[in-house]
Amino acid sequence: MTEPDQLASVRYIVDDVAAAIDFYTTHLGFTLHTHPAPAFADVVRGPLRLLLSGPATSGARATPDDHAAPGRNRIHLIVDDLDAEVDRLRAAGQPFRSEVVTGPGGRQILLADPAGNLVELFQPASH
């Protein structure tokens, strides 16, 4: 069992580790944690450790067909001002996969990393 002060890790399969490092550190406030080889790196933001696994890593091996159906999994990052983040990222040429959606809990938009993995930017509703 993980202790509360440890990082939670999520693995994203990426085509280009260097491009993924640049995307997450330049645009989303992650810091580079380790980059032991061109095939793998991990970046950290708060308690989240994002494992960036390139094509040569064991983590990128094929998933069995019965588990490979596309889903809607994504990391969820809370932002203070969604409109400002959208403007900043659009100006940087980053691809969004949705428009801003408003619901009872707040507002969100989906962004894609260089490999097409989804990132949800979420601004909670003010109470």
Results as ranks from 00 to 15, higher is better:
S9C: 07
V10D: 03
V10L: 06
D15C: 03
D15N: 14
V17D: 06
A19P: 06
T26E: 08
T26D: 04
H27D: 00
G29R: 00
T34Q: 10
H35M: 01
P36M: 13
A37Y: 00
P38D: 15
F40R: 04
F40L: 13
F40N: 10
V44G: 02
G46E: 04
S53E: 11
G59V: 03
G59F: 12
A60E: 05
R61K: 14
T63N: 10
D65E: 15
H67W: 15
A68C: 12
A69E: 13
H76F: 12
I78E: 12
D80K: 12
D81H: 10
L82I: 09
D83H: 15
A84L: 06
L89I: 02
L89W: 01
R90F: 01
R90S: 11
A92K: 05
Q94D: 02
Q94H: 08
F96E: 11
F96W: 13
E99S: 15
V100G: 08
V100I: 15
V101G: 14
T102F: 06
R107T: 07
L111W: 02
A112E: 08
A112P: 01
A115L: 03
G116H: 09
V119T: 07
L121D: 02
F122M: 07
Q123W: 02
P124R: 13
S126V: 12
